[in-house]
Design a protein around this nucleic acid. Sequence first.
RNA 1: GUGGAAUUAGCUCAGUUGGUUAGAGCACUGGUUUGUGGUGCCGGGGGUCACGGGUUCGAGCCCCGUAUUCCACCCCA
Length: 409
Amino acid sequence: MIQSLRGMNDILSNDYERYEYFLNTASTVAKRYGFHYIETPLLEETALFKRSVGESSDIVGKEMYQFTDKGDNDVCLRPEGTAGVVRAFVQHKLDKKGGIHRFYYHGAMFRYERPQKGRLRQFHQFGVESFGVDSVYEDALMIMMVADILKALGIGYRLKLNSLGDQHCMPAYREKLVSFIESCDDVLCDDCIRRKVTNPIRVLDCKNDACQNLYVNAPKLIHHLCEGCQSDFDTLKEILDNHAIAYEIDTNLVRGLDYYSKTAFEFVSDDIGSQSAIAGGGRYDRLIEFLDGKPTPAVGFALGIERLMELIVMPEAVREGYYLGAMDDESLPQILKVAETLRSTQKAVVEYDSKSLKAHLKGADRINARYCAVIGENERQEGTIWVKDLLEKQESTFPLTHFTTKENV
RNA sequence: GUGGAAUUAGCUCAGUUGGUUAGAGCACUGGUUUGUGGUGCCGGGGGUCACGGGUUCGAGCCCCGUAUUCCACCCCA
């Protein structure tokens, strides 16, 4: 038997109902906030991700599905969604056009990782990106959107918040941090020693307890923000307070993608195991110019659909549509005619085998139909159809013509 | 990429120190005396015990390898 590749799953009917429910909910929220759908290719030039996500990141460094295609191009399956959207934004010269551009997207992402619950090699994200808005109100908007989506889905969460500074305050802080690391680098773990060179900010979320004990005394970026970053961060907290969105400041929240600056946030759930981050995002004002566009402020987030699907509370299924059956073979053609008419406006499922009324009622119940409609010998002779409302437990007989005339259904 | 656990019916799981024809619940399906659903009662189908080797008179059970899933690390959505 041939089976799907490791960490790559099929989505079957039951799961897809959940998936579709999520997409409808999230898309509706995004549209209400004024965002428009964008779709970009699953395959992109490798250079795109090296320049955006960053070569020092684990994602680019060791998790990409990268290969050379038949045209000798170095390509890879997208490991995240932002880079492609920014590429499209620049390629279609929306940066030069100016103004505000707000997009949402969803689709498959690929990372070659060791799978476990909530971590797949092919997984799905829903994300939004906003270009051209400098105001921290847009950062708050992102967080409110995620909160809205999670609320609509009945999902509880904790929100972690941090500021990563910008090109005015981050470099100076980085130097302070590096000298701190050097002051104690004889007792740090190997990873931290490596990070000191590749991406020193990342030592802060090292999971090693010994390192963490030392970092308690490390300089905190949040205490070294420049005036602009500090006031934006204060404003952001104020907006969230005004909208009753609870958050906790996490000075170690640095995020694994290199392009973030200023606002960084992460939504986590305590109910899905160790892969607990369900959404994450932040501001990335420099990324557009890194990808050869005109400098444009930008902010966005992404949400892990599979992780959310574990948490979604589905609304109770309601009885819907018609189940149609015949009690003898001669009645089936009439049943098929009725079904054809009904389908112009609603769900109609036909059972081809003739069987007893009881068996048909069971069948209708099984597919959760609202109505069970049956034609047997009696109905055929009278030119009628028997219909039972399975919810109200009421039954009646209609002339067949009532159900074969589109105006009536 | 590192360490550990698991894999038996569609699903959740039993299966004794290695010993006849591998079980249960749920689900599916049929009947319940002839046209009334869910929940009663009776029956039925469904298993290469993950896959491939090995040990043994004999393997679901012991050993080795492979695959997948899960847990922790790591990482992140």
